[in-house]
């Protein structure tokens, strides 16, 4: 268990830097994590991905794959990589306050 200081908040995280207590998550925290992930600003397109991840995680209990983001969430893969360069699902899940994705695809 570790702690991460984000702006005026301190959140609980695992050793991997992913939040472990979803109740602590809020949009300001998401903005702070995004900065750590080299994403300057969360646009409505970013939020669309983040909100889909949260909704799908709640329903399915796992982080959706890129294929599911496209098929169910209607999020284009090219666009996804543009929004969250260098590891889109990993980054988006961390910003969304979700656990680290475990799927290989």
């Amino acid at each position: 268990m570790a702690e991460l200081k984000l702006g005026k908040y301190t959140v609980e995280t695992g050793e991997d830097g992913y939040m472990t207590n979803p109740d602590q998550w809020n949009k300001e925290i998401a903005e702070e994590i995004a900065k750590q992930e080299n994403i300057k600003e969360l646009t409505p397109d970013h939020w669309n991905v983040i909100e889909f991840l949260q909704k799908d995680y709640k329903e399915k209990g796992s982080i959706p794959t890129i294929r599911r983001l496209k098929k169910v969430g209607g999020i284009d893969t090219k666009e996804l990589y543009k929004l969250f360069p260098e590891g889109p699902v990993k980054k988006a899940a961390r910003i969304a306050g979700l656990p680290k994705p475990k799927s290989c695809v």
């Binding site: 794959t65 890129i66 294929r67 599911r68 893969t77 090219k78 990589y81 799927s103 695809v105």
Partner: peptide
């Protein structure tokens, strides 16, 4: 959620 081969090729290219 593992894509078929043609879909996978498209996914790779988009990625």
């Amino acid at each position: 959620d593992i894509p078929s081969i043609p879909e996978f090729i498209e996914l790779l290219s988009d990625a």
